[in-house]
Each structure stands twice: as structure tokens, then as C-alpha cells.
């Protein structure tokens, strides 16, 4: 009788584990297939049916794939754009969040509500006019076009304001009594306390730049390598052999090169990313 209860319990637990692991395997397959294919020889990659595992690993594919494109340039461009837009985002959101969280001024709450409302609007509505704006300012094919629109974010302002609001107002009043200026208070007290949230913003913003594709594709021309970002570079890279046939192992090596850095960032800073994501919703 009592053995039965235990048996059922373990059966149910096992089933849960089995299903979860099965789902995890399914989720992981693309990564596995990407890395496996990237390491296969030119011969193995065209085997039918393909090998599901191999010891014949060709790490040289990564070097060849890297050299067959202008990845070094794309990386540099992407890092530059990520750095500028992230720095800009942090500065603008910190200042604005402080104003919304601590300063008193006419129309503060109205403006804040209006900003919140804009989060509902699909980006496609805005992209068209922004595209026209960039063209009119003759900024197409420049880094400025890739950075300027991403130097602030309503969501991050909202997110950081929440954190700022949790800091007790007494700290602000105490600083006022001591004659600390608003700016110094923001810099010396608020920013250090809100560091985890700011770090979340930095990571999410940088990841956004890394994965950006649509907007860069719109405001830069395909032939202009000097401002090309990594996603766009990957898509426009051919990875073909002399006969013009696709070299899948190179293509997968290219995908791996683009994917791995961001996975490493994710795995090391997971808790900050999850914090930001589950607090509210932004899809990267």
C-alpha cells in the first residue's frame, strides 16, 4: 500500500524530468547542429544522411569562414555602434528617470503617461518616417544613422524610474540638507544604488545592437562595407566555394562566430538579463 504512493510519486517525477529533458534537447538542437556542422569536413557536410556526431573535427573552418568575409570589420563596426548607443542610452535614461522619479516640475506626470503610451506603438509605424528623416538629413550610410535613434528608450526610462523610486526619499532630503546638488546626488547616490538596473540596461541595449538587422539594412546600402554590422554582414556573406556552391560548414561557422559571443555574455550575466526581462517585457 504505502510502496504504491512512493512508486506513483517517483513515476510522476520521472515523467516530468523526461518531458523537460526532451523539450530541452529539442530547444538545444539548433545550437548542436550549428556547431557540429561548423566542425565537419567539406566531405562530411554533404553526406546523405548526415552524421549526427563526428570525431573528425575541423576547427580550421572557423578561421576560413572568418577570413572569407570581412568579419573583423563587421565586429569593429558593431562594437562601435553598440558602445555609442549604449552609452547614449545610459546617459539619457539616467537623467530622464531621475527627473521623473525625484524632481518636481509642471507636466511631469502628463509627459510620463504620454511616453508610456508610446510603448504600445509598433516600431514599423515609426521606422518609415525615421527612414525619411535620416535620408533628408543625409545621414544614410553613416554610423550616426545606426546610433541616433537608439540613444534612448522609453522602456528603460520606465524601468529605471521604478528602481529610482524605491530609493527612500529621505536620502534625497538628507542630501539637500547637506547642500548636495541634484546632479551630484544623482551621480554619487542614485546611480551606485541603481547599478544592477543600469547594468541590465547596458546588457540589453548592447544585445539589441548586436542583433540589429532591419534598421541597418534600411539605412545603409548593401555595398557599403564600412558601416556594415555583424547581422547584415553575415546575411550578405556568401560562403561559397569556387564553383559557387554554398559551403554549409563555413556558413554554420559564421553563424557560430556571431552567436557565441552573445551566448557567453548571456551565460555570465544571466541574472541581470532575466531580471530585466521578467520585470516587464521587451523582446530582443
Amino acid at each position: 500500500m504505502r510502496e504504491n504512493y512512493k512508486l506513483w510519486y517517483y513515476l510522476r517525477k520521472s515523467l516530468v524530468y523526461f518531458l523537460l529533458i526532451f523539450a530541452a534537447v529539442l530547444v538545444f538542437i539548433p545550437f548542436y547542429w550549428m556547431i557540429l556542422t561548423a566542425l565537419k569536413s567539406d566531405y562530411a557536410v554533404e553526406l546523405v544522411p548526415p552524421e549526427m556526431f563526428t570525431w573528425d573535427l575541423h576547427f580550421k573552418n572557423f578561421i576560413d569562414a572568418y577570413k572569407s568575409t570581412r568579419f573583423d570589420l563587421y565586429f569593429r563596426n558593431t562594437l562601435f555602434v553598440a558602445f555609442c548607443s549604449t552609452t547614449g542610452t545610459v546617459i539619457t535614461t539616467v537623467l530622464a528617470s531621475f527627473a521623473f522619479a525625484r524632481l518636481e516640475f509642471k507636466g511631469r506626470d502628463t509627459i510620463f503617461m504620454l511616453l508610456l503610451a508610446t510603448m504600445m506603438i509598433p516600431g514599423e509605424m515609426l521606422i518609415i518616417t525615421n527612414f525619411v528623416t535620416i535620408k533628408n538629413w543625409q545621414l544614410d550610410d553613416t554610423f550616426a544613422a545606426l546610433i541616433l535613434p537608439f540613444m534612448t528608450s522609453v522602456f528603460y526610462i520606465f524601468f529605471l524610474r521604478q528602481t529610482f523610486k524605491q530609493i527612500p526619499n529621505e536620502l534625497y532630503l538628507a542630501a539637500k540638507v547637506d547642500g548636495t546638488s541634484d546632479f551630484k546626488y544623482l551621480l554619487k547616490i542614485m546611480v551606485p544604488i541603481a547599478k544592477p538596473t543600469i547594468l541590465t540596461i547596458i546588457i540589453l541595449s548592447a544585445i539589441g545592437s548586436w542583433n540589429a538587422y532591419v534598421w541597418p539594412n534600411l539605412v545603409t546600402s548593401l555595398s557599403n562595407e564600412s558601416v556594415k554590422l555583424i547581422s547584415n554582414g553575415l546575411r550578405s556573406s556568401a560562403f561559397v566555394d569556387d564553383l559557387g556552391r554554398v559551403k554549409y560548414n563555413w556558413q554554420m561557422a559564421g553563424s557560430t562566430i556571431v552567436t557565441i559571443p552573445i551566448l557567453i555574455v548571456f551565460l555570465t550575466l544571466k541574472k541581470y538579463i532575466i531580471r530585466g526581462v521578467s520585470r516587464s517585457g521587451i523582446k530582443g
Binding site: 523539450a23 530541452a24 530547444v27 538545444f28 539548433p30 545550437f31 547542429w33 550549428m34 544585445i207 548586436w210 542583433n211 538587422y213 555583424i230 547581422s231 547584415n232 553575415l234 546575411r235 556558413q251 554554420m252 559564421g254 553563424s255 557560430t256 556571431v258 552567436t259 552573445i262 551566448l263 555574455v265 548571456f266 551565460l267 544571466k270 538579463i273 532575466i274 526581462v277 530582443g284
Partner: peptide
């Protein structure tokens, strides 16, 4: 962690994988 992995991946890169 495994289930979270696809979150940060590059749509273009993984598109090629798919």
C-alpha cells in the same frame, strides 16, 4: 539556462541554422 538560450540569439544567424 538551456530553455533561455534562444532568447539572446541573433535571428539572422539562427535563421541560417534552421
Amino acid at each position: 539556462t538551456i530553455f533561455f538560450l534562444p532568447y539572446v540569439t541573433n535571428v539572422i544567424a539562427i535563421g541560417l541554422v534552421f
